[in-house]
Amino acid sequence: EEPGTYGVALYRFQALEPNELDFEVGDKIRILATLEDGWLEGSLKGRTGIFPYRFVKLCPDTR
């Protein structure tokens, strides 16, 4: 996996908008950016989108 910051999904998130990223509990999401209003941008399984930061637990930065 690529170096960078990752978050592990604490809850299932179902995308409601085309720019959102849906995921299941336990998915490991690569964090790409921190956005305003409590949203993160991340990538998972070749898809990129935004999601609420409270749905993931950030992992320590590992290489």
Rank of each mutant, 00 (worst) to 15 (best):
G4M: 15
E24R: 07
P18C: 07
L44A: 07
R63P: 15
L32Q: 09
F55D: 04
G7D: 01
P18F: 04
L35I: 11
L32P: 03
R30A: 11
L10F: 01
I31V: 07
R54C: 08
P18W: 07
Y6H: 06
L35P: 10
G38A: 01
D61V: 11
L40A: 15
D37K: 09
L21A: 00
T48Q: 10
E41F: 11
P3C: 10
L16Q: 15
T48I: 10
E41A: 07
S43Q: 11
L21K: 02
T34G: 06
G49Q: 00
G7I: 01
L40D: 00
G38T: 00
E1L: 13
I29R: 04
N19F: 09
L40I: 09
L16G: 14
L40N: 02
W39S: 05
E2K: 06
E41L: 09
R63F: 10
V8G: 02
L40V: 14
L21P: 02
T5G: 02
E1Y: 10
I29S: 02
T48W: 00
P52W: 05
F51K: 04
D37L: 04
D27I: 02
K28A: 03
G46H: 02
R47C: 05
Y53N: 15
T5D: 05
T34D: 12
P18L: 07
G42Y: 00
R30F: 07
L32S: 07
L32C: 04
E1S: 12
G46V: 04
I31T: 03
D61F: 09
F55W: 08
L10S: 07
Y11L: 12
K45N: 14
G26M: 00
A9T: 04
I50S: 05
G4K: 10
Y53A: 15
A33R: 14
E2Q: 06
D27Q: 03
V25E: 06
V25M: 11
V8L: 10
T34E: 13
T62F: 11
A15C: 04
G7Y: 04
F51N: 02
Y53C: 15
E24K: 11
P18D: 13
L44R: 08
Y11E: 13
R47L: 07
G42S: 01
F23Q: 02
L35G: 08
I50R: 15
L16W: 06
E2C: 08
L35N: 05
Y11M: 13
G38P: 00
P60Q: 14
L32I: 10
E36K: 12
D37E: 07
G38C: 01
G49K: 02
V56N: 03
D22W: 04
G7V: 13
P52G: 06
L16A: 15
R54L: 05
E2D: 11
